[in-house]
Amino acid sequence: MSPPATTPVRRLWEEVQAGDVLPEVRMEVTLRRCVLDAAATRDFFPGHHDRDYARGQNVRDVYLNTMFFHGFFDRVGGEWAGPEAWLARRRLDMVAPVCVGDTMRTEGRVLRRYEEDGRALVDVEILVFTDKGLCTKAVLTYALRRADGTPIRFA
């Protein structure tokens, strides 16, 4: 099956402003998604698939792992930045576990736009909430294409 057809975004560095808002993304956490999480990240730690173990850890239920959130933040940021943008750095903080039955909702915004060593960078903050409150957050640093077409430098 093909992925959903979308027109790739081309986000130019000059067009970005601090305070710009990223589109909200929502996703439900089902047990099936947790099982796919284990397989897709090769992570068979029991807290991510064994309810009794998770409860023994003082967590409500089976919960998504950190690698899920790496991918989820990168997706939310990447849909805004466009497929040509280069993710240079990601800083992620887990605040509370996201468990089976939760629905996630994102809030994202541009923190700043700046140049460093000649690179055209933006910092984007993304927060993930459930009905329990803030669960995890990340700051993504993207190198973006400049309007003059200068190629993006990775490092």
Binding site: H70, L87, R89, R90, L92, D93, M94
Partner: peptide, 8 residues
């Protein structure tokens, strides 16, 4: 797990 900081 608590936090990660990754550079690409």
């Amino acid at each position: 797990n608590v936090s990660t900081d990754s550079r690409f």
